[in-house]
Design a protein around this nucleic acid. Sequence first.
DNA 1: TCTGGGGTCCTAGGACCC
DNA 2: TCTGGGGTCCTAGGACCC
Length: 402
Amino acid sequence: MCEHVFVPGQATILHADLDAFYASVEQRDDPKLRGRPVIVGPGVVLAASYEAKAYGVRTAMGVTQARRLCPQAVVVPARISAYSEASKAVFSVFDDTSPLVEGLSIDEAFLDVGGLRRVSGPPADIAARLRREVLARVGLRITVGVARTKFLAKVASGVAKPDGLLVVPPDGELEFLHPLAVERLWGVGRVTSEKLRARGIATVGDVASLPEAALVSMLGPASGHHLHALAHNRDPRPVVVGRRRRSIGSQSALGRSRRSAESLDAVVLGLVDRVTRRMRAAGRVGRTITLRLRFDDFTRATRSRTLPRATADTRPILATVRDLLAGAMPLIARQGITLVGMAVGNLDDARAVQLPLPFEHSNGADLDAALDDIRRRFGNSSVNRAVQLGRRQGMTVPILPD
DNA sequence: TCTGGGGTCCTAGGACCC
DNA sequence: TCTGGGGTCCTAGGACCC
């Protein structure tokens, strides 16, 4: 029998994070790069090795500036397929370690090892073994944080990197957390950090000493509640397996030179082709098309439209993007465009049944029959969605069984 | 700091439904 | 006929993350 042994109050969540991922893959594959400052470019810094970070080189910095800070750095072009292959290899080590793995990005994941104590030993041992395994099987160094909650495990790995392991014991959580800078809190970026620091709030402990209402009025309801909870070390979120992407998109920076309408259209065509290919490969269809623009002064704009039915076909999506772009032409003419992107959201499984509903010429009886059919085939909770979407669209509703 | 590419989630007003 | 409360969806913008 396989029972899940939940030990309350134990640190059982691992946050595993590869160190300087892209740069480490380059150093792994080319011995000449080992021990040297490496920057993955070109254009902007996609990743920097720790040797380069020591000189102040940071992700998203222009490569020109990075070279000024660290003239001896080797700049190599990104090899995305190599990174994605390395990522797959690392995730297969994760999957061999625990059945409960939640990927966060190409280079980090949460693992819940709470049920593995009898089979694999205590979490700290599992974490140490995981680090050895990733190094042995994939040749990459990884940092692991271990704690009772996801948030704390992630903070722990952030503090421990590079090439570290840090366990936060349940009776030492607040001592660990409260002296840290507010920027360590998940969800505190540039804007929130400035708001907090302007009020003299510099550490997690400072946040914890504030009444929740004060944070809410400062930052809005969602951020306020969120930060208050994290500062008091409340984070009940479980590790979730099999989370699915909610949108698929692509974008392209255009540089400073002026673009003709024709060349803009060529870029858009390429984006739509890339995105729809990826959607079809993933077996997804989507309804909401978003056009993303960025201008000379770095302001942004988005335009979106929701289609009556989900699709992964190039033609309707391209037509929609072109239409949105045409609507935005006055804006583009005024501001000068530097980036164009598009994304498809509201994703559904391509296997979802596209049900036609007889709303348009309905006499009521037709509709009731259709809803009965949905109830019979897909379960009761699908009916509400069908009614909502069907009324709005008058046509087609994608439904997956309950 | 003159800034790439891929994402997630929240907010807020208006439309619409029960 | 007028009214209310509760809820979802759509659109646009913004903050944040790696």
